[in-house]
Every structure is written in structure tokens, then in C-alpha cells.
Design a binder for these strands. Structure first.
Lengths: 339, 339
DNA sequence: CTGAAAGCGCTTACAG
DNA sequence: CTGAAAGCGCTTACAG
């Protein structure tokens, strides 16, 4: 590694000032075309690398956006992240990513890091138990925050997520219309807005149809394939043998379908199962999963755009945008079959 | 957002110099205990945020590590990333992440970004067609590179990956020992070292057993669930009806098992299928997938540690570390059944 | 143990 | 259209 090349290296070689070089490299109209071309050409030739730390120290804009979610291994978040990446890329923003695994402490550390790096903003799916104060802390230090997927009480920032109560209603009503009367709800936790909203939505749909949603029919917890798989025996042993399961998400549903298969039953024939999210793999699961499209791409795109708009000075008032979910009927649901 | 709080804010308030504050905050033994405590206490009280850009401009160490892989949505990489994250976290390093989707150009842009941010190093699974020059460019600019999963010809840097030829041999030999003689290989591309090595390993195992590996039995391409799913009809229509498929990875295998189920056949009974990687979900697939453990966690941990060691001045000579894969026998393989 | 001063590599008014 | 100079917020020799 030779001598570090900086603006002044170019300036000296070309007998101009660093100010001119700086402006030229950023295509300022203040610089004569000829001068600019000469400078850019030389910079490329000697392999100059722009030092963003120095620039950002001066301008206090870093081009960095922090993104923190529960777990990027979860395809639900991965799909959102892809959309965010696409948007940020297009604006030349770099993003730093972290999982918080629903640990408030880890999330706090991450926000701190973004602040230290002079980040321009943060997009986050808040960890369970995130206090509004954590979000206010970021904003007080000039770091705008945008929430995705989950809400935080009293945090006065934009939120982008699906309409959970409505969406789970679509799935529940679909099963009811097929003739199911004993429908269980599997997965999700009351500790998140998403978990509460979906359970409420299920209860509401059942009540509206005049059906009894027995408390025993709720199996809370599962949010992963493994957990859904493990919950299958529990579901099958449920009192009064429900003929259908509304699952909290696709992962839980796919896992449970695998668990049902292990028990010698066939999902979509013996037991109807619905998912939630419409992950890419929902369509190729066996059987193909009836689920609710939850607009991951929409959420990611809109959240990123909202943040970018805000960075560009737009007045992004704290708004809550609910994406309208849509039912996707496939093979995992059918008319009830008594066991 | 009030007045920006910086070192000198604290220094002024406490009638000490910024040098003392700087040293105190970093727990230098040069500072008297009393002074240090007073400074740290005050810093916390007024909500001081350390400006890493400024510090790193001075020290030329940023605490940032770049990580770039094909696609974080791919659980194979996601599992590696988790391990990397764990290691970096422990050393207080932040990582910025990017997908290159096998586009050399996107990968180059990312390396450029890491350089601009003054990153301390890069861990990458090189995109198809990565020229050694791209890696040399990073190193020439003081950015150490560590490769994972794939090799780049003539790039003189550490590589951590599984022993592909050996691993695929385990799967192939397992099928042979069950009595299969017509075994196809599905998925993977010749454009990566991984793809070539696994195909070679399969050929080698077949030859060693005196079996004919017909070129038609190779279905190149699939690396995702969707692609594996789509390849199922093609496999089932193969000349001489192979009774088993060695798949290039778990995703392809799981997708293909779903495709086989759609065709009314049962994987693990009518057709034997092996995967590769032993992703978390391999064990809960239906049927549970016989596969080859590929040490994702090992790869991630060792790669991260190698980089950290290098940052701490260790002489990390360019070495290639092959993790020894292990066979995991489950339900998707059985004795051959003629169709 | 503490302080004064220089410098990391940029950008931005301000002159000319 | 171009240049000289100050300053972003730290850290690091160097004195004392």
C-alpha cells in the first residue's frame, strides 16, 4: 500500500486547489468543463478513494442508514430488507444491518452505533418491549426513525405495516365459508402489536359468525417452522378436534403442515391450514399454502422512501400506513373433514 | 435537538482539556481515577455521543467490517452471517452488509463503499466471475479480505469453506451403498468453484463404484427451492429413470421433494433425495432430508476470527481452510424402488 | 497526571 | 471560474 492518495495529492499534481478538486469530483457547475475532466481523469488514473468519513465530518451527512429487525434469517424480514435495499441503493445510501433478536438492549446498542457513525436515519422493526424513550432518544439526537411491521405505543414516528386484524379476518372467514366451525389459532405472541391484532381479528371473525372460539384452541408461541412443527401434535390433541388452524404466519403454518404429515395426516385434506405473509415459498410448499399476502415489498419500499423523503427535507409527519392484505387461496384449505 | 455535545463541551464544563476527556472516556490509566469518574459521569448525564467518524479520521480505524454475499435471503448465507455477527459483536465491530446477487459490478461498488468508509476489512463470498484484481485492489488500499464459501483463482487471501468434493462424495456413496446405480445430480453451476467441485466429487464417487454417470443425468442450474421444485418434472422424465438424486444444496432438494410430491410420488420411498448444507430446516422437512453438514457456523466463525486476528496484527498468511463435511442420514433416502 | 497544539481529509463560505 | 483558510470532532505526540 503506497502513499495515501487524497484530494491534495491530486491538487498538487494538477496545480489547482483542493477546493477545485473537491468541487470537480462532485460535478459542480462552478468548475470549468476542461478542468473537471482533467481532474476526474487524473483521480481515476491514480486510484483516488473518496474519504467519506472526512466529508461527513464536515457535512454531517453520512449516507448511512441503520436497519434493525428481529432476525434477517426470517424470510419475512429478508423480503422486507430486499425492498429496503433496492430503494436505498438507488439513492446511493449505504445501510448497516443488525438483528436484535427481540432484545431491547441489543437494539439500543445498535442505535447508539448508528448515532456514533453519524447515520442519517434508522428503519426498525422494534423489539418486544421497546420503550418509546429509546426512539425519542434517537430522534432527539437528530436521527429520524421509521418503524416497520410493529408499532410502539406513544412513539410519534411513521409506521408501515399490514392491517393485521383485517388480514387474519380474511383467513378466518375463508375457513368459515368452507364450513369449518371449530377453528384453532396457532402461533404469535401477545407481546407484540402484531400478535395481539391477529388474535383479536381471529376472535372478532369467529364471533361475527356466531362461532365459539374456545380459549383452549389458542396455541400461543410458535413463530418459526420448527415451533410450528413441534406444535402439530399439540394441535392434533386439542379438545373437540378443531378441523382447521389459522396460523400466525407462513413459517408456523409450513412447519405445522410438516408436523401433520409426520402424524400421518394430510394438510389440505384432513386438516385445513392457513398461513400469513405469503412468503415466496408458500406457493411451493406441499400442499401449496393458503395464506394472506402481507405486502413485505410494499412495507420495505414505503418505509425506505419515507425516510429518504424526510432526509431530503420533506415534512414526513408521523403517520401510520396500513397495507391492505389480500387472501391467497391455494391447496392447504378445503371443506372440513371429521376425524 | 439541542446544541451538539462534543468532547470540548465536557472539557469546558469540567475545566479540563479535551485530551483528558478523550483519555478518560477510553479508560486510560494516565487519568486519575477521580478525574475519570467525574468525566464519565458528566458525559453520561448530558447524553454525550461519541463521534466515531472524527475518531476514525484521526486513528484510521473505523470498527467497520464489510460483509458481502450472494443473497442474505438464502438460509445458507444467513446461517454464516449469524456466526459472523456473533464474532464481530464480541469485538465491538460493526458490520455493513450487502448482497451482490452474483453481479461483479455490485460487489465492486460495495468494496468501494467500504473503502470510502474506512472499513477495517471485508468478508466476502465472491460473485461469479470475480477477478483477482478486484480483491487485490482492496488489499492494495489497506483493506484485508477474507473469502468464504467460494474460492477466487490467484487471489492470495484466506479462504474458509467446506470440502465440497469430499462432502458430495459422502452423499453419493451413501446412495450407492443403499443399492442405487442410476443416480442423477441436480443443481449447481459450473461457474463457481463450489459447483465444479461438487459435480467432480459426484463423478468421482460414481466412477470409483464402477457406475456410469450419464451426462444426461446432470441437471445443472437449480440453487433455490423454486428452481428445485421446477426441476422435479425434468428429473422424473430423465432417460433410464434414475432412482435417486444428489442435489446441489438443501434448498434445491427440498424444492424437488415438493415437486415430487406434486407429481404424486413420495420422496424417500419412490425416489431418494440428498441435500447439501444441513440447513436448520432440513431436519423438519417432509420427509426429513438426508444431507451433508457443511459447517456454516464454523465457516462464519473462523472467517471472522481470521479477520479480527489480522486486524490485531497477527500474521494471517493466505491459507485455505477446508471444513470437513459430515453425512446426516434421515428419511429422504432408502433402498431403490423401480418405477 | 494534565494541557496546548497539530493534524486526520474533506467542504464551505469568502475573496478575487 | 479558482484559491486561501477555517473548521468538522476527535487523538496523539510532546511538554511540563
Amino acid at each position: 500500500m503506497a502513499q495515501k492518495i487524497k484530494l491534495s495529492t491530486i491538487a498538487d499534481a494538477l496545480k489547482v486547489s483542493t477546493a477545485t478538486v473537491s468541487l470537480a469530483l462532485r460535478d459542480s457547475p462552478l468548475v470549468a468543463d476542461q478542468t473537471r475532466d482533467k481532474i476526474k481523469e487524473h483521480a481515476r488514473a491514480i486510484g483516488y478513494i473518496y474519504n467519506r468519513r472526512a466529508a461527513s465530518l464536515r457535512t454531517s451527512r453520512s449516507g448511512i442508514v441503520g436497519v434493525v429487525v428481529h432476525d434477517i434469517m426470517n424470510p419475512f424480514f429478508a423480503e422486507i430488507l430486499r425492498a429496503i435495499e433496492g430503494e436505498l441503493d438507488r439513492s446511493g445510501q449505504t445501510f448497516i444491518l443488525s438483528n436484535h433478536y427481540d432484545q431491547v438492549e441489543k437494539q439500543r446498542t445498535f442505535i447508539e452505533t448508528v448515532l456514533q457513525l453519524g447515520g442519517d436515519g434508522v428503519i426498525m422493526s422494534p423489539a418486544i418491549g421497546t420503550p418509546a424513550a429509546d426512539i425519542r432518544m434517537a430522534e432527539d439526537n437528530g436521527l429520524p426513525v421509521v418503524l416497520i411491521a410493529r408499532t410502539v405505543q406513544d412513539a410519534n414516528v411513521p409506521v408501515f405495516r399490514g392491517d393485521d386484524a383485517y388480514g387474519i379476518g380474511l383467513a378466518t372467514n375463508h375457513l368459515i365459508s368452507l364450513g369449518h366451525t371449530r377453528i384453532a389459532m396457532v402461533g404469535g405472541t401477545d407481546q407484540t402489536s402484531t400478535g395481539r391484532d391477529r388474535y383479536e381479528g381471529y376472535l372478532h371473525a369467529m364471533q361475527k359468525a356466531g362461532l365459539d372460539a374456545k380459549p383452549e384452541w389458542r396455541i400461543p408461541g410458535p413463530r418459526t417452522k420448527q415451533a410450528g412443527f413441534d406444535a402439530a401434535p399439540q394441535f392434533l390433541a386439542l379438545k373437540d378436534h378443531p378441523t382447521a388452524a389459522v396460523c400466525w404466519n407462513d413459517l408456523c403454518a409450513i412447519g405445522m403442515m410438516n408436523g401433520i404429515a409426520r402424524a400421518g395426516l394430510v394438510a389440505g385434506v384432513d386438516i385445513s391450514v392457513t398461513g400469513y405473509d405469503d412468503l415466496e415459498e408458500a406457493a411451493i410448499a406441499t400442499p401449496a399454502l393458503t395464506t394472506v399476502w402481507n405486502g413485505q415489498r410494499e412495507v420495505g419500499q414505503r418505509a425506505a422512501r419515507a425516510l429518504l423523503d424526510q432526509l431530503n427535507g420533506a415534512d414526513t409527519h408521523a403517520r401510520q400506513e396500513l397495507i391492505k392484505p389480500e387472501l391467497r387461496i391455494r391447496q392447504s384449505t378445503s371443506i372440513p373433514k371429521e376425524r
